[in-house]
């Protein structure tokens, strides 16, 4: 990394409007397999990872004079409509007529969102003076009759990365990689996630490796965790932080795939005072940690109505059958949830 700091000048979170309470699963199936889930944010029929990405990106760019003050767009997602045909180009086309913007699309695991932010950082560090827009957007899907479907939600977060560090400065990153088997896999051409429900703990080894990798960072003031309630507790334990300092919105918005860790990061930034150290962690075949320092301009230009907490508490609750209809799980003619 070069000496000139790179950080965030703006960030924005966006959730779809609909909410499904965990109680809906108890009514439908007798139990909600997502332990600790209160409710989740879910896409309406006409929403998907792409529309969420556009919404978050436009929100992050609201206060910019130019429509496209970035030279690269990095999109992290696991549930885009195509295996080939870059949705990042679609997102870009909704934001600007510029054709001279590099797009990078990252998928493969729930780390993809934080990886997009990391790539944006590295791009800006390699090209001093330039900016990049990192967008994480996801709406993972699974068949209706499997337990891991219960937690799946949707959301998006966008970060404008560059030399302006008003919102936060990017300080460190660390990644550990450990191939995992049986959890969260999806073969090419499949629209829905599989999970073999093995009892292997994939979180603890990743946290232990991560702990060692970030030893010389110093303790964070806040921890943003892209994981469920259990993962958040354990991450807090490993880094010595308890609930008030933990941003783990999973229980209120569900498993938003690649967008979960970035949304947790947005939540942490929503609460952070200037100067506080925020560490964001995402899991998936290992783990990725990003370390930021909250910037002086954090509160200005961001309406409370757009905070993750307020967005999560808002929305419109629907019932289980309406959820199945919106998520296209009853559509025989359109190939399901893709």
């Amino acid at each position: 990394m070069t000496a000139a700091p790179v950080g965030l000048s703006a960030y924005a979170a966006r959730l779809p409007r609909l909410r499904l309470p965990a109680a809906a699963y108890r009514d439908a199936w007798g139990t909600c397999a997502a332990r600790g889930l209160e409710r989740k944010a879910v896409c309406a029929y006409d929403e998907d990872a792409v529309t969420l990405a556009v919404a978050a990106a436009r929100a992050a760019l609201t206060h910019s004079a130019a429509p496209a003050p970035f030279d690269a767009l990095i999109l992290g997602a696991t549930s885009l409509p195509y295996d080939e045909k870059p949705s990042a180009a679609t997102v870009l086309s909704a934001l600007t007529a510029r054709r001279d913007v590099r797009v990078v699309e990252i998928g493969g695991s729930p780390q993809a969102g934080l990886q997009a932010l990391l790539v944006a950082w590295e791009y800006c560090a390699a090209h001093p003076g330039r900016s990049a827009l990192a967008v994480a957007a996801d709406a993972p899907a699974a068949p209706a009759d499997v337990p891991h479907e219960h937690a799946l939600g949707a959301g998006a977060a966008a970060f404008l990365v560059g030399p302006d560090t008003a919102a936060a400065t990017l300080c460190h990153c660390a990644a550990v990689t450990l191939e995992t088997f049986g959890a969260r896999l999806r073969r090419r051409g499949e629209a829905t996630l599989r999970d073999l429900e093995l009892r292997t703990d994939t979180v603890a080894p990743a946290l232990a490796d991560l702990r060692a990798a970030v030893a010389d960072w110093g303790p964070p003031d806040r921890l943003a965790v892209g994981g469920d309630a259990a993962a958040a507790r354990r991450a807090g334990g490993v880094f010595g932080l308890s609930a008030p300092a933990l941003s783990a919105p999973w229980a209120r918005i569900g498993d938003c795939g690649a967008a979960l860790a970035p949304l947790a990061l947005c939540d942490a930034l929503d609460r952070a005072a200037p100067g506080e150290r925020v560490m964001a962690v995402a899991f998936g075949a290992g783990a990725l940690a990003l370390d930021l320092t909250a910037g002086p301009g954090l509160a200005s230009g961001r309406a409370d109505t757009d905070s993750v907490a307020v967005l999560a508490d808002g929305g419109e609750e629907i019932g289980y059958v309406a959820y199945l209809r919106h998520r296209r799980m009853l559509s025989s003619r359109l190939g399901g949830t893709a």
């Binding site: 029929y45 006409d46 929403e47 998907d48 792409v50 529309t51 556009v54 919404a55 409509p81 045909k85 679609t90 909704a94 359109l334």
Partner: peptide, 18 residues
């Protein structure tokens, strides 16, 4: 205005403004 998914045709997702 918001961007939303309109329909699918010829294997291509058609996005538009609502």
């Amino acid at each position: 205005a918001v961007v939303r998914r309109l329909f699918d045709q010829e294997g291509v997702v058609r996005y538009g403004t609502k």
